[in-house]
Design a protein around this nucleic acid. Structure first.
Lengths: 176, 176
DNA sequence: ACGATTTGTTCGTCAAGTCGAACGATTGGA
DNA sequence: TCCAATCGTTCGACTTGACGAACAAATCGT
């Protein structure tokens, strides 16, 4: 809930309820009730809080860790198209205020590559172009074929392993 | 503003104001005033809207195209790596505050697909996974092979044409 | 051409969020 | 020990957002 998010961010900033309310320009009674779970604030109030906390507003809506999502080559919601020989699949709609870096990767079979965990909140999106590979968070590795799309948290240890020569895939690195 | 965001997402979903209000379970008068810019909604209201629009809530907060750039499969700045059989190429470092939608496309040879121009400021990133194709803005079409990366403004007329069966490629649609 | 439906807006009413003040509880000096 | 300051909560008064109905305008179907 939002109550928990506000409390979490406030304690993370090391600010007291009164101080935060003062900085945000809202009554501390309002903030108190918000953190208690009573009522649902207006965007104006939330905006003031987010500004005072110096965090993106969307952070106050953060739910639990996003689960991994695997979309096989023959899966995914195919978008409507006028021409039948054109099949577009929306893999991931990006939330605003995020950075997404796109990588193209060519990998050879051999030892397993263990990636150092990225900063907290990082999300990786993988799309295999050709070859075959095995990748994913530790314990949730998946066998991937061309066209497969796999997304998972990047702030946990994860591995890449090519099963065929010149295995090519795409990584979209999403940072909060 | 939020007013514009709601309007944008609603029109994108092709829903009328009355219909959306009904689906979201809010009064259409409320929605009308929101889109008019008057008032600041409560999170409960926004949540209902986001759910009805089937978009993440954070998308309701907020909203120049670079020249074309073509990176051949054997081109691109290869990032440093500890292991020689791992070659990652950064194709596009995303600027902040942009939306990027990722599409996977499979296309068959045949007639040329002419894309209706997207909203102003849209940028498309293409990466060919397999097959062969010809695509790009009108007059700047390029022959593309697997691994080729091509980016160009999406708010101008552009075309896609597969040269081989089951030509697969990736499109990252970047909206301002 | 006409009625019927749907569109989006404006109005008054009610409920709910926000505010300011006062409250008990806790901490820190002097 | 006592006073002062700060902590977070609770209360009533005010402000504002959400609702429902009525409204003009546009679209549709016969």
């Amino acid at each position: 809930m939002i109550a928990a998010a506000i409390k979490r961010e406030r304690s993370r900033a090391g600010k007291s309820l009164s101080a935060l309310a003062a900085e945000a320009g809202i009554a501390k009674s309002t903030l108190s009730q918000l953190e208690a779970g009573n009522g649902n604030p207006s965007v104006e109030t939330l905006w003031a809080l987010a500004a005072a906390l110096d965090v993106p507003l969307s952070l106050l809506f953060e739910t639990e860790a996003p689960a991994t999502r695997l979309i096989r080559a023959d899966e995914g919601e195919v978008l409507a198209s006028e021409q039948s020989d054109f099949a577009a699949v929306l893999l991931s709609r990006s939330p605003p205020n995020v950075r997404r870096d796109v990588y193209r990767v060519v990998m050879q079979p051999g030892e397993i590559r263990r990636a150092q965990p990225h900063p907290r909140g990082t999300v990786e999106h993988m799309l295999v172009c050709s070859g075959q590979m095995r990748a994913g968070p530790e314990g949730q590795e998946e066998q991937l074929w061309p066209g497969d799309y796999y997304t998972y948290p990047g702030d946990h240890p994860h591995t890449y392993e090519a099963k065929q020569p010149d295995t090519m895939f795409l990584i979209v690195m999403e940072a909060p």
